[in-house]
Design a protein around this nucleic acid. Sequence first.
DNA 1: TTCTAATCGAGACGGTACGTCAGGTCTTCTC
DNA 2: GAGAAGACCTGACGTACCGTCTCGATTAGAA
Lengths: 191, 191, 191, 191
Amino acid sequence: MATRRGRPRSEAVRSAVLAAAADLARHGGPGAATIDAIARRAEVSRTTIYKWWPSAAAIVLEGLLDSVRESIVRPPGSTTVQALIHHVGALNAILADATVGPLLRNVMSAAAGDPAIQAALLERWIEPRRAAVVTALRDAVAAGELDAGTDIEVVVDALVSPPYYRLVFGMPPLSDEAVTALVDTVWRGCV
Amino acid sequence: MATRRGRPRSEAVRSAVLAAAADLARHGGPGAATIDAIARRAEVSRTTIYKWWPSAAAIVLEGLLDSVRESIVRPPGSTTVQALIHHVGALNAILADATVGPLLRNVMSAAAGDPAIQAALLERWIEPRRAAVVTALRDAVAAGELDAGTDIEVVVDALVSPPYYRLVFGMPPLSDEAVTALVDTVWRGCV
Amino acid sequence: MATRRGRPRSEAVRSAVLAAAADLARHGGPGAATIDAIARRAEVSRTTIYKWWPSAAAIVLEGLLDSVRESIVRPPGSTTVQALIHHVGALNAILADATVGPLLRNVMSAAAGDPAIQAALLERWIEPRRAAVVTALRDAVAAGELDAGTDIEVVVDALVSPPYYRLVFGMPPLSDEAVTALVDTVWRGCV
Amino acid sequence: MATRRGRPRSEAVRSAVLAAAADLARHGGPGAATIDAIARRAEVSRTTIYKWWPSAAAIVLEGLLDSVRESIVRPPGSTTVQALIHHVGALNAILADATVGPLLRNVMSAAAGDPAIQAALLERWIEPRRAAVVTALRDAVAAGELDAGTDIEVVVDALVSPPYYRLVFGMPPLSDEAVTALVDTVWRGCV
DNA sequence: TTCTAATCGAGACGGTACGTCAGGTCTTCTC
DNA sequence: GAGAAGACCTGACGTACCGTCTCGATTAGAA
């Protein structure tokens, strides 16, 4: 197979850009993470950034997905409720994290005006995480723990949307007890 | 009684600005509703806009609050579950509305970078609507329908956050059946 | 004869406006003496200013003419040369004055873009002062001191333009000795 | 030799800006030659103009210095008086010129409020022209034509300030005869 | 080694929007 | 009727960032 001719893409540039964007987005909020500012801080030319990313939000999103790479895995040997508590708790912890939270908030904000960001966010952030919950619930249905008529999408919504809601509106994140109460309540309402 | 000195504020200007901002925000999304564009469309001078509003998002928010003035009221003679279904259904309908939804989405987006918008949105949009649900649930606790140990904030989160979640991530809004299922599930989990 | 109806014009307003304009023009240069700034400092409404003056420069000019009201008079019993030295010296002193100089400079600057100021400056500032010199020179011609063929306008130009020239280009003003040398030279060139 | 990096500066842009500024300043006077108007007429972006010039007056000045590049040279074999007549006549012609005069007038006007323009005007317009006259007079002193005690600066003032004076106050320019009379008078007053 | 293709950097340029300031005009109330 | 108070429009200001562009400098594999 023919290796690419020409100068290879610099990995140093990529990581410097992602780090700069994350720094700027974390502090200073959106509006701070402009392409100009990222280029200045990363000491990378604007031209180069435009060659690889379509927008500042895309950079922040890429950095976000890079930094939160490990998916939430079901603890082995856990009951369904334990698995759900673990998942919602982990999600809640990520969104409450001082590093990740503001980044995600920025990207969500940018998604309102950029269909490409919107789609990428849905496909690469939301869907994988929902899928894990859906799987757990389907397994519970298959195991007879849950009624077959349960509307799984609605249950997932009830479980995962509160952490986003509180992040978006600047409310304090859910405590661990609140997470437990949330999952318990929804679970009891299903069985 | 002291009448106001000077030329009175033009109501025509205010409504033209709000209408223009709403139009622009609905189509074109955020980024379209700039102060410049609003001024052009409303045929109002930029200076005047700056005199009365601090930002484009503030205009959109004011128009939003103006257009959705009537609060969601509990139907007389309704049971708690019926009242909750009515409330969540009404909220869901508002967020799914092709006029209001995009506007709120824009304002939520702007809130990420503007603490004033953030605070106004929380105080003038979120709190009043949460309060109605909280009241219904407290009444239910007082009537012995609900356990006194119920974490009401968590229950409210589970009920109201899904419509916002779906709006923000561009997912299809909840159907009426889904709303009913959501309320039923959460309610059964509480009692 | 019928006295004027209605509230009489406030002299306090006029003098406050003139004083404010002079203050602003002296320090801060032109660009500082805007109608807005004058109104603020004089604590007079902008409307009132617009009613009485056509522009900021007109205010400064009026204040200038007010403050330099006494014309330059020929010392009694003086020879022509003495009279000319007195006149040019007095003019030079006025233009070098820290109060009057900057004001006149501002008005000259404004005259470039405002024909009304241009005309008023010529008629009410330049002409009267030139006339005094012209009279002295005509008297000298009549007395046979000066040749009848002398181009008086040219001689006046040579005598009075240097102080303006130095003011406009920000050069140091003429010293008293320089004034004497100037008049002596021109005078000797005429006889 | 290090060649310049980056896209080279467009000479077309520079000349278009200078031409547009000159046109606007000539007709319409100062106040017409705003950065906005220059940008519109030159079809150049405002940003670019701001990158290269600090103010509209600086543009007009640069155009002025560009257009009047050739300095006034002493005609070979001329006597001192002839040289002075030539110089003052040439200066007078430049200031009376319908193209250059208004431009210089604008710049002089702007100099009143802008120390940078003031300094540039003095250094790049006034000083070089004065220097030529000073040289001619010093030569005359060295040749014994002029008394060693002559105050040369005063003589230069008397010779060159009238054309500026008449330009600034909107008086008709000196005729050639008046120029001759002026130089003759001053010269006779010196010897 | 030299050619060739790509990345990267530097910087000019045309735009759009920002938020502010001043100039003027108009409307309303008070003295 | 003079003056104050203030709303409104127009237009220019200087700045920030956008996205595009033209260059030169650099870094590799391929000829």
